[in-house]
């Protein structure tokens, strides 16, 4: 490809993306287009959905804060015209905890990949869920480490081929909704980018929810697809369309993801419960201490 071809391609990408995000310029940094996401990636749609949800949330944009770690998904909040913190790999949830505790008025949303949040960042994730911090965590699960070239992670389905499992993956993957539930998350949903309206709705519910909210988005990744019988960009989308079953009442123990073509991919708004958040409990503690005096 000549440099003028590359320039034309870039121009095309900028034009088409600018058009795609039209009307959302208030919350999307269109000056940063084209973004780094591959053609066929789900992240562009998730970005649009999240931007739309932020606008619709009724919470002033200035109070929205995005936090992310490293990976393709980690780049997403940087394209949002909000305060965004792109921290080190795996640490987004811990950073979000600090932000929220320091200023509970902030609407803090972590956006991270499966590698970032439940693999290297797993410990921060389960403990923040256990403490029920009032933060939102969007986990974009594409079964793979995309940015580093396609290695397996904690959600890679057994049997998958990746650059570090050339003979087929022998590990069992995390079932993220079940992990979130067991850890103490108080809002749990799973969607895919092709369920756009439901995804945006789940984001809105997540903003509204007081407590640790987890939305898993199963997203297509061409790096995963090309090695695992989804050779073209549209194959994974077709797979989502054909295999997804919406079941809000699903038994979380039974919704792990496998490569078995007979198994459904269960999505929905699975769980919601109101439990006092860490921030609320700590506020009560401060009030108690200032009323009753300090401990001797």
């Amino acid at each position: 490809m000549s440099s003028s071809d590359r320039f034309r391609l870039r121009e095309f990408a900028v034009t088409s993306l600018t058009k795609y995000y039209e009307g959302l310029e208030q919350v999307i940094r269109t000056d940063r287009m084209p973004h780094i996401f591959c053609p066929g990636c789900g992240l562009g749609i998730i970005l649009k959905g999240l931007a739309e949800a932020i606008l619709k949330s009724g919470i002033p944009i200035n109070r929205h804060v995005g936090v992310s770690g490293i990976g393709c998904t980690g780049r997403l909040p940087g394209y949002l015209r909000i305060d965004a913190y792109h921290v080190t790999h795996g640490r987004a949830v811990a950073f979000a905890v600090g932000l929220k505790l320091a200023n509970p008025e902030l609407e803090v949303t972590v956006v991270g990949g499966d590698g970032d949040i439940v693999t290297i960042g797993g410990n921060h994730f389960i403990h923040a869920a256990r403490r029920n911090h009032d933060i939102n965590v969007i986990i974009v699960n594409n079964f793979i480490y995309g940015m580093t070239g396609g290695q397996y992670g904690a959600t890679t389905p057994t049997g998958s081929y990746t650059t570090t499992s050339p003979y087929g993956h022998v590990e069992y993957p995390f079932n993220i909704p079940l992990l979130a539930y067991a850890s103490g998350a108080t809002f749990i949903a799973r969607w895919t980018p092709i369920h756009y309206a439901q995804m945006v709705d789940a984001f809105l519910q997540m903003f509204e929810h007081k407590g640790f909210a987890v939305v898993e988005i199963i997203a297509p990744c061409v790096l995963y697809g090309e090695r695992n019988r989804f050779p073209s960009y549209t194959d994974m989308v077709k797979y989502f369309r054909d295999r997804c079953v919406i079941d809000h009442e699903a038994d979380l123990r039974k919704i792990g993801i496998s490569l078995d073509p007979k198994e459904p991919l269960v999505i929905g708004n699975f769980y919601k419960v109101r439990r006092k958040t860490y921030e609320e409990l700590y506020k009560e503690l401060i009030e108690r201490v200032s009323k009753e005096g300090a401990k001797e």
Binding site: F95, L101, A102
Partner: peptide, 14 residues
């Protein structure tokens, strides 16, 4: 790890 990162988050919030 979480401790120092949360500290940085809090400081980022002022």
């Amino acid at each position: 790890i979480g401790s120092i990162v949360a500290v940085l988050g809090a400081s980022a919030a002022g």
